[in-house]
Design a protein around this nucleic acid. Structure first.
Ligand SMILES: Nc1ncnc2c1ncn2[C@H]1C[C@H](O)[C@@H](COP(=O)(O)OP(=O)(O)OP(=O)(O)O)O1
Ligand SMILES: Nc1ncnc2c1ncn2[C@H]1C[C@H](O)[C@@H](COP(=O)(O)OP(=O)(O)OP(=O)(O)O)O1
Ligand SMILES: [Mg+2]
Ligand SMILES: [Mg+2]
Ligand SMILES: [Mg+2]
Ligand SMILES: [Mg+2]
Lengths: 653, 653
DNA sequence: TATCATAGT
DNA sequence: TACTACTATGATA
DNA sequence: ACTCATAGC
DNA sequence: TACTGCTATGAGT
């Protein structure tokens, strides 16, 4: 089954021995519950294909002609939105988490490694990718593919810090840039580029690169800078290459500006980024993968060249066309965008209106070029955990309580409430169920959420009778969100309620359970005495981040309680600091301290290289720390269709 | 030069290709400043050998006979102190730091790895040892010996926690056990063993070992338990070995008790320990290395068998006979203890009285069997750092200030003052100088110490004129210590002074420098503006521990300042907790929380295995944290002679 | 008492 | 990029 | 509005 | 020991 096989749609994974890799993967997974579930899904998907094919056979020539007629109108309409005037860039860090761990432990540089554990890998370096080891693969399979694979556990704070440093650089060029995730962002460099050309050469900057920065990665960037041209104007674009120190200036073409950005990223973080340049986000995104790692690619900005570029492109390369869509398209003999265009009439007859329009735009090389960090608002917020099998109601309610508590904390910090609560359940057979309830009013109260959720759980256990409901995961999601204004007063209210709750939290959590589970106590209470086996969750940042975020709120509270001093502990170096609350800059000071800490990993984990800090005491150079949300705050969604039509044609159905 | 070659006096390092290893080590180090200094030391040592040999040639037969006469008296005296009645045990964890890191990241289990970095390795696992990679070797040489070597940075808190868990188990058997370092301890099991035999079989315990604990390591321990004997009494000593779960009882022999202890250690920590059993500490220590890793050895408890055991023993195996002593002995053709005894007349004539007595006792298999945690008192306390080369006075004073500040903090926490201050300086040529000063009174004040130390440094710079004093390390040591009683009042005073200092620390530190360096400001002030290159120190726990210890004191202060609540942040999970100060148990509660945290490493660094903690919030199961010194508190010294005579013959000169 | 060297983890 | 940090004792003057 | 599936990092 | 956690959208009801 292709479903179980290697998913090679990632940079650095071409030309592998897929045969061998798939055999190993299959051996490792065959017979497992996970495998059985994949087979079940596979069947479902195959059925979908069957339905599609059935539909296909019923299509008449007349229908196809009518479709082409309608498509012509659609195409004309789309063509009017084609815009080649903007320079859109997509920047994506290479093997992001892995690169950071390697930077901080260079002995890993020449080894296959992955960030994660035997349960799940979040990413792998390019060496490991040669073995078929990739993100979203369980570690134990990675280990079979590559017995020398080394695992490193994720350190979310470091990734967030690196991300922040990168974004600071991007902001210099487009203050409105939109981040998609910790490691990627879109930018619109049109305005910047014009500015640069206008003020040229007064805006010209020459960078001096000290020897220690001249790594192989850095040289690759510098050596691609266009050499000086003959006419004097471009002669600034040169790289003096005397012995050790090197001077470099970047030109004012879009390519050179991108090289400058990648140069600054590497200089600041020692990480490499790749970039794609195109007239819209769809094309830029495709291009950023083109020369990965540590490369960049620009599609030519003419209608013909763009269409030529698209025609040869496998459909799977388009963000939004995944494993299943690819397969569906394959069934009607579409594997690249030329065929996608040629068979657009079939698409029209077989797929939905939205999909048709999406496919058509893709085939034409058209997409949204709106880049903005202003319009993004989160639409849902959730918390879920995998654990060892449970089936007793009491166990489920304990999990549920924790999830609700956690989720409520995050909602309070973001000052949002929600009206739709969704419970997600995954059985030990990996089947996922979700049950959602619309509430009478918006809420972010732990108790309220728990009461609803526990009802849902109870009813779900009954619904599957006489089978036992055997769970491996539970999740709570809130959607239909409302944002509450964050003027001082309302923040204070929320925080106050939060802290009230905190103070009575221990007993409240308990009583919530007892209250909500009155009905089953007689039946199940006696089982509570059995010592429950220690579940372990394979999860990633969330738990860590929850800890630190609560720490932050709680610290804020603590300092309020005391006096007019802010007392905080740096989560990196564990050092304790006291600031005057009335100095408005204390938070900024703290932030800067955290930056410093993170820039010196050897402060906490010495043994790498010399560093004169004796950690003598708290005075000395001012040290400081940051309060910010621990959840990533993207400034744009990453779902293709969203990106795609966002602010271009959002009137569409 | 043997001096530079591999030091294979460690478990797991026999049968290596020393030729090849030494060649690689030599290649890596030849020509370095370190190497040159080793050559210098080598010369010195050789000179010592020459003097010894000169002395040797002048020895007459008469002298030797006289010596033997005197030795006879000595020997008789020693023989009276021979005591075979006590069961002394030495327990030493296997590849301690490395084993912990492997336990917490099992993907390292089959790889050569070391704890430390490219600068210095603190230990290595047994796989790496096969390549000649060992503790106290710089990482970059390890890397040459074994290019696949993986480095893991040290995590002192984890080692301290594991050590604590082990010691808790040891205490069950000998509450007076004496720890030597984080990973080893002596015990006297005589009393325990008698108790166990008396109450037998009522004291008999059967352990149930769940399947997941039945690792290879564990099985090795269990399978060595003596099988049931024919006479009914011993039949408790059995291992039921049905399918998965296994039951085991340990007998009441010293060996079985040790297996029980090692069993409990492995069950609790997943680490392995090795043990040596003998009638005194010297023999127990030798024996604990005998079957490393995860093994144990008992020397037979008769005078003849002990002497037989010693006779074949290379001198280097005795704790206290190091590289140099071994070589000196080799020069008079002594390489094992038989020869050590046979040539005791030469020893008597060539070595000091103390050494002679030591060597003689060793050869006779005699040593101290006093095990106690009560009598230990620290004799000195110090702080030192390596950094990038400095030679300006201003730079030196900055380092010195930090060292003094740090040292003072630690002394205040231990409530001690000192009267002898020693400044240690290591030049870039690795030459070590020390200068000590006896003060008029005991002190632990940063300022006072800094004033003295900076005078020493100034004079040392002048003393080496016209050469520049070029340093790579500076250290401050205080000795001739006085302990101050820790009744409430005196603690309060010390803490108060400490916090007073802390509050003005920033400015005080600065002013101290300015004041103490008045004389050079005119000359050197202008150089202070040059941006000094960022030094990096390769050092191990101290910086980390300093941070956390200060955190703890500082937190204590913070909570005093506020109200009657104790507010503390768990250094492991970063969670913030509040306790009522008047609940006397708050500290214990906290300690227990930290234990819990450390037992669940995946709470902070998830991705390994399932664990149901959502980190929901602060209530729930009570969580808590510990205040304890971050410096290891041994309960006995580890210097052989100290161990050796301690409380056995401490009247000796 | 002061300095350097050896030894241990 | 690169040979530790900390404690204790012995030898010698 | 609700459920399930797909998709991306 | 062992197949994530989070967010968003589309399709079908
Ligand atoms: N399936 C996943 N689950 C959780 N985290 C993920 C997953 N995939 C990726 N991540 C995290 C780890 C990645 O380093 C980071 C950025 O993802 P992504 O850009 O797709 O890959 P990458 O940066 O690791 O490699 P590259 O971009 O070079 O292909 O997001
Ligand atoms: N030279 C050193 N410098 C700093 N720390 C050290 C040094 N040698 C050992 N340590 C630390 C790391 C060790 O894991 C720990 C215990 O030392 P030790 O018992 O001698 O070796 P070990 O426990 O690592 O291996 P083993 O005992 O199996 O030979 O002390
Ligand atoms: Mg990436
Ligand atoms: Mg990405
Ligand atoms: Mg050990
Ligand atoms: Mg040891």
């Amino acid at each position: 089954m292709a479903r179980m096989g290697l998913n090679d749609s990632k940079a650095g994974m071409t030309g592998l021995d897929k045969q061998k890799i798939n055999r190993i993967i299959l051996e490792a997974t065959k017979g497992s519950r996970f495998y059985n579930n994949e087979m079940r899904k596979e069947k479902q998907a195959t059925e979908r294909v069957t339905r599609l094919k059935a539909k296909l056979t019923k299509i008449t020539q007349a229908q196809r002609l009518a479709a082409l007629d309608e498509l012509k109108r659609m195409e004309n309409q789309l063509e009017t939105t084609r815009d080649l005037s903007r320079f859109i860039v997509h920047v994506d860090m290479d093997a992001f988490y892995a690169a950071i761990e390697i930077r901080d432990n260079p002995s890993l540089a020449d080894k296959p490694m992955a960030v994660g554990g035997t349960g799940m890998m979040l990413t792998s370096n390019y060496i490991a990718r040669r073995y078929g080891v990739r993100a979203a693969m369980p570690g134990f399979i990675g280990k079979r593919l590559c017995p020398d694979l080394v695992f490193v556990k994720p350190n979310s704070a470091k990734y967030a810090q690196a991300s922040k440093e990168v974004r600071a650089i991007l902001a210099e060029y487009d203050p409105n840039f939109a981040s998609v995730s910790l490691d990627e962002a879109y930018m619109d460099l049109t305005e910047y580029l014009e500015g640069r050309k206008c003020t040229f050469p007064s805006s010209h900057v020459e960078f001096t690169v000290p020897q220690q920065d001249l790594t192989e990665d850095m040289l690759k960037i510098l050596n691609e800078v266009a050499p000086p041209t003959v006419d004097g104007v471009d002669s600034y674009n040169n790289c003096s290459s005397n012995s050790s120190i090197r001077k470099v200036s970047f030109g004012h073409t879009i390519e050179d500006v991108m090289r400058e950005i990648r140069f600054k990223i590497n200089r600041k973080t020692k990480l490499t980024a790749s970039a794609g340049i195109g007239p819209n986000k769809m094309l830029a995104k495709i291009c950023s993968d083109w020369k990965k790692p540590n490369g960049q690619f620009k599609v030519e900005f003419t209608r013909d060249k763009i269409i030529e570029f698209m025609r040869q492109l496998p459909t799977r390369k388009i963000s939004g066309i995944g494993k299943v869509s690819e397969r569906l398209l394959n069934e009607i003999e579409i594997s690249n965008c030329k065929e996608l265009y040629d068979k657009r009439d079939l698409i029209y007859l077989l797929f939905s209106n939205v999909s048709t329009k999406f496919f058509l735009a893709v085939a034409m090389g058209i997409g949204s070029n709106e880049v903005s960090s202003k319009n993004y608002q989160r639409k849902s917020i959730s918390c879920e955990r995998t654990f060892g099998e449970i089936s007793r109601l009491a166990d489920m309610l304990v999990k549920c309580q924790k999830l609700c508590d956690n989720l409520a904390n995050h909602m309070k910090k973001e000052n949002i409430t929600g009206r739709c609560l969704t419970v997600k359940l995954k059985t030990v057979a990996f089947e996922v169920k979700q049950r959602s309830v619309s509430l009478k009013h918006h809420t972010n109260s732990t108790t309220e959420m728990f009461n609803i959720a526990s009802e849902v759980i109870r009813s779900e256990r009954l619904a599957c009778q006489p089978e036992r409901l055997r769970l491996r995961l539970m999740g709570i999601k809130m959607s239909t969100l409302k944002r509450h204004e964050s003027d001082e007063k309302s923040i204070q209210d929320t925080l106050t309620r939060y802290f009230n709750k905190y103070d009575e939290n221990c007993s409240q959590s308990q009583s919530t359970i007892n209250e909500a589970s009155k009905s089953f106590i007689n039946i199940e209470q006696h089982k509570l005495d059995e010592k429950s086996k220690l579940d372990k969750v394979t999860c990633y940042f969330s738990k860590y981040d929850e800890n630190s975020s609560q720490l932050q709120s709680t610290m804020k509270e603590a300092s309020k309680n005391c006096d007019n001093m802010e007392k905080v502990t740096c989560p990196v170096c564990d050092q304790f600091y006291v600031y005057k609350s009335d100095e408005t800059s204390w938070l900024a000071l703290l932030n800067s301290h955290i930056d410093t800490c993170l820039q010196q990993p050897e402060t906490m984990k010495p043994s790498q290289s010399h560093n004169d800090s004796v950690g003598s005491s708290k005075g000395k150079g001012v040290k400081r720390r940051k309060l910010q949300h621990n959840r990533m705050q993207p400034t744009t969604g990453n779902k293709t269709l969203h990106n795609f039509w966002q602010a271009k044609d959002n009137t569409h159905q």
